[in-house]
Design a protein around this nucleic acid. Structure first.
Lengths: 160, 160
DNA sequence: CGTTGATAGATGCAAACGCATATAATTGCC
DNA sequence: GGCAATTATATGCGTTTGCATCTATCAACG
């Protein structure tokens, strides 16, 4: 038994990186928040919105991916907005003839929301231009592998 | 020259994954947005905020990382909020004795914002509990390597 | 059936937000 | 030094938001 035998405990990955697991998590979250803010700001100032707010577009986009009409509650799961705020946002889009509310024969409480033809057309138009801006912003700094990795990590985070 | 020579163009990584680079970027962004929304909602409903909104905490946190007092404009770079909204948010926090405004001798336009003792104490208290919630949420679904990767990808996205 | 509790969505209201613009101070250029 | 352009922040105002609460409907159980 030599005095040179290393007696330090085996390092974890976090130790090897010089940070605790908690710090690692918080640094990752802070970086993600910053990236979110930077990109949201950049996308918001693109001239592609045709009078929609990003939240309004978010609702149109969510509906565009759905085959069947959605309830307010369902939409709420995809949009970071309180139920009353979402309810009124839908009101406004209905007033603008971009959405329709129709009754559910099986549940009189529910409001089924769906895109009008105009709503779908507007979503497509905005989506095309916005999607191009998203691609532009992300592909200039990330490789294909990194984009795929970001998607994978994000899906893990979003899972319950 | 044989007829068996493959004449298809070399596949890119995106082709190999079966998606175009644009689609890849948009899928990554959508997943990131979803993760952001899911986690924000979860963090917001944690009972750690002591009467602060998350945006207000964001300002206290940003200031807590700075040695010197910051201008409104500097804070604005870190917070996803319009300049007037930030100006009034600071007003409210000053009214609550969590921040102080002091004049800049070299530039009478500028408002130097800094934490009061109470503001710093509140940030620490909230930060401790919130940081724990962040760590909890992220470490249960991501490994250390993945956390570090997320941080790296996010920093790349936020650059420029 | 009828009452109780849960669920979907709407509404009252005060607080907070964004846009446009005002105010005030600085910089640059003649 | 004086005037235009720019920068930093504040304010007016209409819109949107969140919280609390309300209404209406459904589900479940005696």
């Amino acid at each position: 038994m030599t005095a040179a035998t290393p007696l330090v405990p085996p390092t974890t990955t976090a130790d090897a990186l010089g940070r605790s697991r908690t710090v690692l998590a918080n640094e990752a979250w802070e970086a993600a928040l910053t990236a979110h803010a930077v990109l949201m700001r950049r996308f918001a100032e693109e001239d592609v919105w045709h009078g929609l707010s990003m939240r309004e577009y978010d609702v149109l986009y969510t509906l565009s991916k759905c085959e069947r009409p959605q309830r307010i509650g369902e939409l709420g799961r995809h949009v970071l907005l309180s139920q009353p705020a979402l309810s009124r946002l839908v009101d406004r889009l209905v007033d603008r003839r971009l959405l329709t509310r129709c009754a559910d024969p099986a549940d009189a409480r529910a409001a089924h929301i769906s895109l009008t033809t105009a709503g779908r057309a507007l979503q497509r138009e905005v989506g095309l231009a916005h999607g191009a801006a998203v691609a532009q912003a992300m592909t200039t700094v990330l490789t294909d592998e990194e984009l795929d990795l970001l998607r994978t990590l994000s899906l893990k985070l979003a899972q319950e």
